[in-house]
Write a protein that binds this DNA or RNA. Structure first.
Lengths: 331, 331
DNA sequence: ATGAAAGCGCTAACAA
DNA sequence: TTGTTAGCGCTTTCAT
């Protein structure tokens, strides 16, 4: 294996010092045009690739940005990551990711490992980290953005929306549109604390409006179109007279729609189905479904921007909440 | 800002040398139980987090694994990444990702930047990197896995399946099931070279079987359910007598189904729709759709395993192809 | 089993 | 504008 080409090699080849080479390779500040060209050419010729590891050690800070999400199978988080990626793109930062599988202990390990890379910033999902994790996040003064959820006080910055409000708004909108016999279908509520939170607030609001939840079906395991389908079947079996069902998310609602279509139940005439997230998929479905359109791409973008922003300051300036209101869509 | 806790601090607190502390903090080899405990306790007490950057510089190799995919909005790649993540999980490696947006130049930049992190390995999508990128990949002797596509010679290892075969199989299966008037609908073929490849082989095979493609609709831009819907509408307008449509992927096919459902076209009786990938979504759709179930999670897993595998050897041992046959599903 | 010294490849800080 | 000197925090020798 041919020894790795280092900056010293470039410097030698260009006939300048390491420092001049170093300066030339990043922003060309304080380097004569002549040397700049020489160094660039030398680097090109001998195939210099650079070593971010050494650079990071030297600056005591890397240009890695850690992103911690609960799941990758959920397209919502893919879209958030996509937003992050787009915002970061071109800045020279590099996203690193970790997946918690909705497991708090795992989240701790991941955050810890990420911190050991001295990242420029960290983006984590939700406000409900374990105490140990929170401590890690607090000690360091690096930029931390908690995404998706703004019902609480962030360590540093939070970007997202109030899950509580979102559920309340939907409950009000459905009742206002004339629905009275409303049910609920959800999955994975033990782990997906945001979905669980929405369910509670939704039920609460219905109660306050005088039209309490008629029934609900809840299952363990990841949410999916398939789960939505059979839970809807079960719920309508027990309560055939429902005129509306609120789901833990869009996938589940799509499953509900497919059940209805297979059983000649008119959507939305007979029963209104309400999902959550506003995935693009919904707009192409053969029948309209209500949903709360959450700004996932925006959340990703704003989160990344918040990190980049913080990098220009030295200190955190107290918990900051960036609220991105979701939008209710009725059929 | 309180200075970062370093290994030296841990060593001091534990009353041992840096080296002993270092040894104790990773595998506890050649360290007395007594010192091991002391060091661990000290680290815990003073909140030591470690510094992978310094460690990586020291061994001239990081435990980062670079993952380069064309897109995150496409759930297929999320699933691949999910597979990678699961295989890596617990090994102490950390995935870093980059998104090319199907842009070869961007891919080059990303690979370059990743290499500058001296990753333990690299996973890139497809076999069609630019020459410059290929050169980068070849020079280094680090493990490189090219995923999704096995129609060609990999730099090091490829994990996936033959896009050509997949398309050919589907063509044969559809004809064997009695379909004769077959059309095609696709999106983003300029950029998605794998989809483009499938289209060509599909058409070729039909030709050979004596039932050439009747018509096709192709559009620019990302594929989506919505695009599938309106392209299907356009295609059936021109060729109302089609009895089968092959799509560039499942999303498009789902869109096609929704069009048919909205227009009283029986699926699959009147027209068979064939997607590609076998997303879970399909199994819950109100009508059955043909598809090629691609082993995405497996591809991710095997790719990661191949990297970890290679890490135990010193040299590459010639181009290796790991073929994971996809499975055809007819309605 | 433990420790001391040397260095990984780069850049900040200073000097010329 | 350029170069020199010291590290960054760890691990790899090589002693002990």
């Amino acid at each position: 294996m041919p020894r790795k080409v280092t900056l010293a090699d470039v410097a030698a080849a260009a006939g300048v010092s390491k420092m001049t080479a170093s300066r030339a390779m990043r922003g060309a500040k304080d380097v004569s045009q002549k040397n700049l060209d020489k160094v660039r050419k030398a680097a090109q010729d001998i195939g210099y690739v650079g070593n971010h590891v050494a650079a990071s050690l030297s600056n005591n800070r890397s240009d890695l940005i850690g992103v911690v999400v609960p799941s990758l199978s959920n397209i919502v988080f893919s879209e958030v990551m996509s937003g992050i990626e787009r915002a970061i793109d071109g800045t020279g930062f590099q996203p690193v990711f970790g997946v918690t599988d909705y497991d708090t202990e795992k989240e701790y390990d991941i955050v810890r490992r990420m911190l050991s890379w001295r990242p420029a910033g960290l983006i984590v999902t939700g406000l409900d980290q374990s105490d140990a994790t929170l401590r890690l996040l607090q000690e360091d003064s690096l930029p931390v953005v908690q995404i998706m959820d703004t019902d609480g006080t962030p360590v540093d910055v939070s970007v997202g929306f109030s899950q509580d409000n979102a559920a309340e708004e939907m409950a009000k909108a459905l009742v206002a549109s004339g629905r009275r016999r409303i049910g609920y279908v959800g999955c994975n509520l033990d782990q997906d604390t945001r979905a669980a939170r929405r369910r509670i607030r939704f039920a609460q609001t219905l109660e306050e409006l005088g039209h309490p939840l008629i029934g609900e079906e809840i299952a363990d395991g990841m949410s999916s179109v398939a789960a939505g389908r059979w839970l809807t079947s079960a719920l309508l079996e027990r309560h055939p007279d429902l005129d509306c069902i609120y789901y833990s998310n869009d996938d589940m609602a799509a499953g509900g729609l497919f059940h209805c279509m297979g059983n000649n139940i008119k959507v939305p005439e007979k029963v209104v189905l309400a999902g959550f997230n506003g995935l693009d998929l919904l707009t192409s479905l053969p029948a309209p479904i209500a949903t709360t359109r959450t700004p996932r791409d925006q959340i990703g973008r704003r989160a990344a921007e918040a990190i980049l922003d913080r990098l220009n300051r030295t200190e955190r300036d107290g918990p900051t909440v960036i609220e991105l209101a979701p939008e209710i869509r009725l059929p």
